[in-house]
Design a protein around this nucleic acid. Sequence first.
DNA 1: GTATTTGCCTCATAGTGTTAGGCAAATTAG
DNA 2: CTAATTTGCCTAACACTATGAGGCAAATAC
Lengths: 189, 189
Amino acid sequence: MVRVGLTTERLVRAGAELADEVGFDQVTVTALARRFDVKVASLYAHLKNSQDLRTRIALLALEELADEVADAIAGRAGRDALAAFAAAYRDYARRHPGRYAAARLRLDPETAAASAGVRHAQMTRAILRGYDIAEPDQTHAVRMLGSVFHGFVSLEAAGGFSHTPVDPQQSWDWIVDSMDAVLRGRTPQ
Amino acid sequence: MVRVGLTTERLVRAGAELADEVGFDQVTVTALARRFDVKVASLYAHLKNSQDLRTRIALLALEELADEVADAIAGRAGRDALAAFAAAYRDYARRHPGRYAAARLRLDPETAAASAGVRHAQMTRAILRGYDIAEPDQTHAVRMLGSVFHGFVSLEAAGGFSHTPVDPQQSWDWIVDSMDAVLRGRTPQ
DNA sequence: GTATTTGCCTCATAGTGTTAGGCAAATTAG
DNA sequence: CTAATTTGCCTAACACTATGAGGCAAATAC
């Protein structure tokens, strides 16, 4: 009996790849076991259960995404930062659709609080520094940005834009411009 | 052996209720059979399979939602219509979270083309008539509205706004105002 | 080299999805 | 109103996924 060398780490990473290939909700303990050519029950030494696997993939995705976004907005401000921020999300979602879906998994409060989700919130607020918007408008703006970008990306992934022959990239740019305009308009003169 | 009187119609309706109660992805042929106190295999006389059930629930949700939106925007124009349109979506999503999730199910092209999804697209464009936006900007605007509203509703449903003590309704109103402002700004003078 | 840990296995159980074929209830025909 | 037919729900059976218990051999510690 040769040991494959399973670890939680490797399983989660492979789970993330699987998610990108077949979709996050097709990620199954069984499929993962197949990928390592190992019996299903063997995975339970490294994972509590199926939900645990999914949660770990979600946390991985949140980390990766936060890293990429942080990288994208570093050294930028204002509209430039906004565009980079938006692009980072969309790019990640397109490169890693399964992981992106995983990142939207509902986490229980403690897990969420310890996750990279916190960094996401901070970074979104950082973007707004360039626009000088005070509370509570700042929270509204954070929610608006989160909504449009997430909404667009998720509609795009669901094929919602394939009925109209207009390049989604054009729409994306137009929307980023619009967001910039709104935020500038919300800045007190 | 007493017959319960199953029909595809009743099953789909019950499936929609089930979705609202336990979440769309917890909708299972087995759970549905339990609800009618009937053996699982009996449902297969009325449903092709599990996917068929889900698709039918999605179509039902799209119809209902389109009806409610149509009702809401009837006789309104401009910002008024926009606000009513937005509210109709959010209200439906909050009253029927499972159905709302179902409405986002990816349908195959022919099914989608024959669904109430078409009416949704038309109504969104109808909203924009009040703003006099020409193509391709109109498509961009349709996508933007779809993205923000869907994004907001889905983040709200996922509990994404519960970390901050700002009333989501305030954010929603603020966002609707922002959309109105953007669209007015995009109107050629 | 023996002792211990530990990784993967086999075995077992339960839930869900789906097909095939049977019998009785409902419906239609005469 | 009975007989013929349709049809609704059932049982049986199989495949796949999830999960737990306990075993044996490989890796590691002493």
